[in-house]
Design a protein around this nucleic acid. Structure first.
Lengths: 247, 247
DNA sequence: CATAATTTGTTCGTATGTATC
DNA sequence: CGATACATACGAACAAATTAT
């Protein structure tokens, strides 16, 4: 047996929430076979040293998320969703990277606007401050589930007048960029951090409040080495892992 | 201005905790200049639409963490700790990667044990199941603050009998491996995920309960291409970001 | 088939923590 | 600093569905 799982004093997070997070970690970490049976409420209550009600509340969360299914008199059963592997590299393309892992992959624009570039963006793209750029807020889905929430600054705006419309029409960033004369693009480096989701983000991605996000930021350069796009992509950490491959 | 910051119904996380997390995100995200003045309690209460007591409790947490400093009658001031950049690549070496960012970098072994390799480990290292390997639990520090918490399986054990002792003596994994005949090593790929810290992890790393961890897992191969080491490293997400560079 | 044991589902009550005013 | 309303956590008891004997 794995032994006791003791949880110490709160820190502002409810006990049922910590129990739910812990069980979810075990499920996603493969400690229960998919389709297998979860320990009973009583066993879990004993293991975490909490009341059965607290365990039930935690399990209710996981049922709402669809990773646990309860059957009266029989027990609870695991329905683990496989985590997708998202490749990070010099020539990463969104849909190509997920090929073979999900059958339906598509994107959706939430909002787009032409506006002066914020200072860090204009600096990263080598533009004079306040040059106008296209900011796009978008969601991507894999098999119907939200996978990423991205903010993309593309500029200067004069070079990418129809990018948003093209993306809406074609559903592919690579194809839309091609229309704007970007025949090829690469990224120099990707910075990866992690943090809690803000409430708007968890709402848009259908995540529990305070879910964990992987955040990747990078600059794309065109075939001539000119930086033209700054992207911040938030990944739902319980649905995807990032894979860095040496080339 | 960004407008209202509305926080929706709890989800098991106390309001003061969500306000604290939100302000910390803003500080770490660079929305307040280091050394600059934070909005007054009243302004923050209005912005988050909460009671002033709630803001005070949130700020008390941030003061305890040392990223906010209160001064009687003047206000509160930001003391943002710069996030370290940890390079991820084929030839990553721990201390070398942080050179120039932190003056004091060192490691510490919490525990080590020779034991049969768990199935995923033996598989990744190409060993027959249950071959004995050396498991090491370690912490690393940068400028006195815990930065990573790693679990390393090195095997087969017969090849690395004195690795733990050497590491304790030399304080360097690269140097210790050299003694065991590993003159050079590289990693093929790194998988990056993120999750909440378990209570033992947040305790060992001196983090708030439920803090966010970046988790990197990778396999190292020696100069002959033989996999000999499987590592899982947990990074405190608010102290470090990972940087993937194209080579 | 009958009954007991197991497991989830529900309803009380009580004490404490959280958040506002 | 209280007074108030609501969420959180525990404990005990019982009902309903399923499985084992």
């Amino acid at each position: 047996m794995t032994g006791e799982k003791s949880l110490d004093k709160s820190g502002g997070v409810a006990l049922w929430r910590r129990v739910a997070d812990d069980i979810r970690l075990d499920i996603n970490g493969g400690k229960f076979i998919d389709g297998g049976k979860l320990p009973t409420e009583g066993e879990l209550a004993a293991r975490f040293d909490v009341n059965r009600h607290t365990v039930r509340r935690a399990l209710a969360v996981l049922e709402e998320e669809g990773i646990v299914r309860a059957e009266q008199g029989r027990g609870r059963f695991v329905h683990a969703a496989r985590r997708l592997s998202y490749p990070i590299g010099r020539r990463t393309r969104f849909s190509a990277g997920l090929a073979g892992q999900a059958s339906d992959v598509h994107g959706e624009i939430l909002e787009y606007r032409i506006e002066p570039a914020p200072l860090p963006i204009s600096k990263a793209l080598g533009l004079t401050p306040a040059t106008r750029v296209l900011r796009m807020e978008s969601l991507s889905f894999a098999d119907g589930r939200p996978l990423t929430r991205a903010t993309t600054w593309t500029g200067p705006a004069s070079r990418f007048t129809s990018l948003a419309d093209d993306f809406r029409e074609l559903g592919s960033m690579t194809a839309s960029l091609h229309r704007a004369g970007v025949t090829d693009y690469t990224r120099q480096e990707t910075r990866i951090s992690a943090r809690y989701a803000e409430s708007s983000e968890s709402h848009q991605m259908g995540l529990a409040p305070g879910a964990v996000l992987l955040v990747g930021t990078y600059v794309n350069r065109d075939q001539d080495g000119v930086p033209f796009q700054y992207t911040m992509t938030r990944f739902a950490a319980d649905r995807v892992e990032l894979v860095v491959s040496a080339e």
